[in-house]
Design a binder for these strands. Structure first.
Ligand SMILES: [Mn+2]
Ligand SMILES: [Mn+2]
Ligand SMILES: [Zn+2]
Ligand SMILES: [Zn+2]
Lengths: 119, 119
DNA sequence: AGTAACTTTGCAACCCGGTTGCACCGCGTA
DNA sequence: TACGCGGTGCAACCGGGTTGCAAAGTTACT
């Protein structure tokens, strides 16, 4: 099962959610897939992305993917195809927090229209 | 009802979620509060914040609060008290998207420890 | 006041993503 | 063969959000 899921993940251009994964298999159980993603994430194979679409999405970690402690790159959510992409080459800009606020991590999601959906 | 909700909202230092609002009233119905927040948002009185905590939170719009088309300021989620704050003075930095990606809006949530929770 | 039209509210049900307990299965090992 | 352990499937549950519908409240007009 994990092999199959890993295959699917590595073939994806966009990040994928649990429900999407579910009906991409049709045969495997939701809980199994859920636990698979969980173990993958614990072992730093994948990272999750909260793009505000209601379902958390997952994408393979890249070579340089330091998901912890701080997510390095920006994510892009296409409002047309509803796909979410890792912009691995777009680092999260550093920001100045008010005094006495300590930074742990940053989630930056840009919405718009992706390259494929531009006409 | 709307008056009451508006009062609560204007007294809040942190953004508030629908469930939080719910048990802050104990008397009003979830649906009513939900619809109240909805109309407030449609009329640009409040804006919503998706901080990844599972529940969308709402905060009053400030004078200069141009929530549309693009959310202007950064939000801060405290991992200790689980409160979410508008950093009204911290604008979202502009970023360079890859070619052919068009920008509509940006959600930037910084997690860490807020001023009150620092020891 | 009486009536009609419109708005707001409460209730209940539903949806959907996520999560968990538990029993079962498959497999390697003593 | 018997045991232990990790993976799987099923079913149930949870929590936030959303909606249909009917009752209650409000407003406008006569
Ligand atoms: Mn990513
Ligand atoms: Mn805000
Ligand atoms: Zn697209
Ligand atoms: Zn705090």
């Amino acid at each position: 099962m994990r092999q199959l899921v890993l295959d699917v993940l590595s073939k994806q251009k966009a990040a994928i959610s649990l429900p999407e994964l579910e009906d991409m298999f049709e045969k495997a159980d939701k809980a199994t897939l859920y636990r698979t993603l969980k173990t993958f994430e614990e072992n730093k194979l994948i990272h999750h992305i909260d793009d505000g679409s209601g379902a958390v999405k997952y994408a393979l970690c890249q070579e340089s993917c330091e998901c912890e402690p701080e997510d390095l790159h920006v994510h892009f959510y296409c409002t047309v195809c509803q796909k979410t992409f890792c912009l691995n080459d777009t680092p999260v800009p550093s920001i100045n927090l008010p005094k006495d606020f300590s930074l742990e991590k940053v989630n930056m999601v840009v919405s718009g229209i992706c390259a494929s959906c531009q006409k």
